[in-house]
Design a protein around this nucleic acid. Structure first.
Lengths: 200, 200
DNA sequence: CCTACCGATCGGTAGG
DNA sequence: CCTACCGATCGGTAGG
């Protein structure tokens, strides 16, 4: 057929590959700017064929955003559980958050831009998870202030600024560059401590 | 023309009010997620009426994004011109950038989310201005490293992180809160110096 | 300012 | 997997 040339690899299509193509398309032009035809084109098929592997465009976004938001929260819990002081916990929490933006940039861009486009139940759950994450980070900063290790007078400004700083990684980090994702993540974790006014 | 007199229940509609309504709508649900009907509804009219005051939805976005990007660059130039050292210039440049995000949050959100949706000529110009701004900020950091005032080994990571940190202000700053836009902007300018490794 | 309407495009279904 | 097609919605125009 004449249309099998446009897309990517011709292998078997399944839910995972549809999700993969949606990640790329949604990240590039946004959820509302993407058509299912564009997603299908990445796989070398026509739009209706996608519906053998997924329920709806809305549900595709929902799965991407919720899975990502849940992973962000789990990463945070792991970082806090692994470390013992507010200072080390903040460093670990920011490191893992920045790292995720380097290793999963499409998911990060989509959550940031399109989470509010979800239908209310999923939207509420996603925003609650992200809010919980922000409050968790802020709580670590407040704990560090309480025990005298952090000097900041503005824990909320620090946490908002730190988290958004990590978002930048998803926009410019290139795995092929000369710095690894792990190195970038540690550098940004260091910045978080400086912003919190960590005393040496 | 002939219709601008009648004492209707609503004020007169002009290009400025259309732009104002578009700013609110685009910022809330994104350019591709907004319909001209939603913009019109904010003004209490029907969608076709808007076209007496504007050319197209695309041009509306173009004007918003280009005007904002140009102002960002002018603010930067003014900050650099006013100050004499890399350290003071960086502080002033970040302060004014953060301030703009506090005072013009809708424009900032739209530029961040939808600049890439512009048609190529306008898109190229907008992205060039923003890239120029980022390179300007990075240049100040490099200048401070060169004269020994900044200790960072990663000027690009600092500039990307600092600029994105300022973007956070557009998302949470509330003029009615207890901190003024100017105070928030100065706090974030301080963080920029810390991230750059300013020596005291 | 409005209603009526245009062509285009969208998400999704039917049926093979 | 495809083509054919559905109803809905969109940006924008015509005409008053």
């Amino acid at each position: 057929m004449a249309q099998s040339e446009a897309g990517g690899p011709r292998g078997t299509i399944d839910a995972g590959r549809v999700r993969e193509a949606a990640l790329t398309t949604f990240a590039r032009v946004g959820f509302h700017g993407s058509s299912m035809g564009q997603v299908a084109a990445l796989l070398g098929v026509r739009a209706p064929s996608l519906y053998n592997h997924m329920a709806s465009k809305d549900l595709l976004l929902e799965e991407i955003v919720l899975a990502t938001a849940e992973q962000v929260w789990r990463d945070f819990e792991d970082a806090v559980r692994t470390e013992r002081t507010p200072e080390r916990r903040l460093w670990a929490a920011v490191r893992v958050y920045a790292l995720r933006h380097a290793t999963h940039p499409r998911e990060a861009v989509i959550v940031n831009r399109d989470a509010r486009s979800l239908a209310p139940p999923a939207r509420d759950r996603a925003l609650a998870l992200l809010r919980r994450h922000e409050r968790g980070v802020r709580g670590l900063i407040e704990a560090g202030v309480a025990n005298g290790r952090f000097g900041t007078e503005h824990p909320a400004l620090v946490s908002f600024g730190v988290l958004e700083m990590c978002v930048s990684v998803a926009k410019w980090f290139d795995g092929g560059g000369d710095r690894s994702a792990a190195e970038v993540a540690e550098i940004y974790a260091d910045y978080a401590l400086r912003m919190a006014g960590a005393r040496d």
